[in-house]
């Protein structure tokens, strides 16, 4: 137990070392989550848009594909 407390104490610099690592976790994790959520949201939007116009579905797909091949 003492060893753990001693370790967490970081030689008296706990209040500088741990916030640095905590912030790193927040920034790295937050960036990853935000990027993944953005991707999922766009994918949902694209699907909804393609489903909302059933008659033109094939065409908008085709338009999107030609858009890719430019």
């Amino acid at each position: 137990m003492d060893a753990l407390a001693n370790y967490l104490h970081m030689g008296g610099y706990a209040r500088f070392v741990w916030p640095a690592y905590g912030l790193a976790a927040l920034v790295v994790g937050g960036l990853l989550l935000a990027s993944l959520r953005g991707l999922k949201a766009r994918e949902r939007e694209l699907k909804a848009l393609q489903d909302s116009v059933p008659g033109r579905r094939g065409r908008s797909r085709a338009a999107a594909d030609t858009g890719q091949d430019q």
């Binding site: 991707l39 766009r42 694209l46 848009l49 338009a63 999107a64 858009g67």
Partner: peptide, 10 residues
């Protein structure tokens, strides 16, 4: 890429 595809479709 998906976002620009969305714009193009719209």
């Amino acid at each position: 890429i998906i976002a620009s595809k969305l714009r193009a479709i719209r």
